[in-house]
Structure formats: structure tokens, C-alpha cells
Simulated assay, not measured.
Amino acid sequence: MSLRAALQARLEQGIAALGLVLPADAVERLLDYQALLERWNATYNLTAIRDPAEMVTRHLLDSLAILPYVQGETLADLGTGPGLPGIVLAIAAPGRQLLLVDSNGKKVRFLREAIRALKLDGVRAVQSRVEEVEDTFDCITARAFASLADMLGWGGHLLAPDGIWLAMKGKAPDEELPGVPPGFAVRGIHALAVPGLDAERSLVVLGRSAS
């Protein structure tokens, strides 16, 4: 079995375990993204994970685990790094306008190449600090980016009135909950089971508070 076939099998098994149904070309495009990331990573050190199989688990499947919670027509992925979870979500659930935000120039260069190479319609990458981004979004994702207090302090202005914020964490960040700023409320904390990953993953869903 070729490496690509082995990675495809791992990815397809993981998608099935997550109970997801993706577009017909999604697996192929996700593997193209993984291969592009692996190639750029050799030169630019975009991620500490270098093993292709680990990339499938820790990057692709980890990002796909939040797909059931994603909603709305517009999404911003803050501190996206090499496009996680943003590019994965763009491939798995196309059709929304998606903004990838990172302050690191080499990561944004990679993102723009990935958008071009993978023909990701409606996806843009900007090199910016989160505080300086304007516009509002129906859904905001952030993966291991900062504490809940810092995330919302820097980027809370980007959340539309009825929008949801999906904060991807390792273990449930109970100690961070008291730091959620006024004007925001925790809507739920979900334990995520990432196929093949022997580590805790949780998703904190936040929104604007009614008051």
C-alpha cells in the first residue's frame, strides 16, 4: 500500500468514526492539503508535527471534529497557523465566506498558496493581529490560540450578534471560565473524541450574552 493510500484509509476511517458525510472530493482535497503542508513544512517549519499519519490525526481529524458545531454564512479562523481548522473546514463544508487570520508572514504565505493550489472559493488569508481585523462573522474558530479571556478580549468585536465562537481546547478549561468577559456567555462545553488521538479534546461554545 502506498503512503497516500494508507493516509487515505486513515482519514476515511476517522471521518466515518466521526459520523460525518463530506463532499465527494473532500478526502482527496484534504490529502492534497496535507501533502502541501508537509512539503512547505520541510522549509518553513509551519507545524511541529512532521509525521504524515500524525498530521492526518492531529490536524485533519482534529479540525473535522468540530464540523457539526459550525454554522452561518461567514467564518473567521483566528490564529489559524497553517490553516487549522479553517482550511479543513473550507474543504469539508464549502460555500461560506471564510477569513483566515494570522500574524505570521510565512504562515500567511503558505495559506495563500494553499488557497490558490486547492482552488478554495470564498477563502481569504490576511496577515494581521486579531485586534486589527474588522467586520463581523457568524462563526469564529480558534484552536489552542489563547485563554478564553484573551481570545474574546482581542477578537470579541468580530462576533456577530447571533454568532457563535468555537474555542478548541485540550482538556476542558474550567479555570478559564471565570475570565469570560462581560457581554459573552458559555453556551456549552463538549468533549470531542478525535479518532486515533489519545488525548483530551474539548470545544467551548460561546456567544453574546442577552443582557
Score class of each variant (00 low, 15 high):
S2D: 08
L3V: 09
Q8Y: 01
A9D: 13
R10S: 13
E12N: 03
Q13F: 13
A17Q: 14
G19K: 00
P23K: 08
P23I: 06
A26R: 01
E28C: 07
E28V: 04
R29K: 08
R29T: 06
R29V: 07
R29Y: 02
D32Q: 03
Q34P: 11
Q34S: 10
Q34N: 14
A35H: 00
L36V: 07
E38D: 08
R39T: 09
N41G: 11
N41V: 15
A42V: 15
A42D: 13
Y44Q: 00
Y44A: 00
Y44S: 03
T47G: 04
T47C: 10
I49L: 09
I49W: 02
M55H: 05
M55W: 12
V56R: 06
T57W: 02
H59Y: 01
L64Y: 10
A65P: 08
A65S: 11
L67R: 03
V70M: 03
V70C: 14
V70D: 09
V70Q: 04
Q71C: 09
Q71T: 14
G72A: 01
L75Y: 08
L75S: 14
A76E: 14
A76T: 07
D77H: 03
D77P: 01
L78E: 13
G81I: 04
G83P: 07
P85Y: 02
I87R: 01
I87W: 06
I87H: 06
L89C: 09
L89A: 02
I91F: 11
G95K: 00
L98W: 00
L98N: 00
L99P: 08
L99E: 15
V101C: 13
D102N: 06
G105S: 10
K106P: 14
K107P: 15
R109M: 11
E113R: 05
A114F: 05
I115E: 11
I115L: 01
R116P: 11
D121R: 04
G122T: 05
R124M: 13
R124H: 10
R124G: 15
R129Y: 05
R129K: 06
R129V: 04
R129C: 04
V130R: 10
E132N: 11
E134N: 15
T136L: 04
D138Y: 00
F145V: 14
L148T: 12
L148P: 14
A149S: 07
M151H: 08
M151F: 11
M151Q: 12
L152S: 08
W154L: 09
G155H: 09
G155I: 13
H157S: 03
P161D: 11
I164M: 05
W165D: 13
W165V: 08
L166Q: 13
A167Q: 09
A167E: 15
M168L: 04
K169Y: 11
G170R: 00
K171D: 10
A172D: 03
A172K: 11
E176M: 12
P178I: 03
P178S: 14
P178D: 05
V180A: 01
P181I: 02
P182V: 10
F184T: 05
F184D: 12
A185Y: 06
A185C: 09
V186Q: 05
V186W: 01
R187M: 08
H190N: 15
A191L: 12
A191S: 12
A193P: 10
A193W: 13
A193V: 08
P195K: 00
P195H: 05
G196A: 11
G196D: 02
D198N: 06
A199N: 10
E200W: 01
R201G: 12
R201N: 12
S202K: 08
L203T: 07
G207C: 12
S209Y: 03
S211D: 07
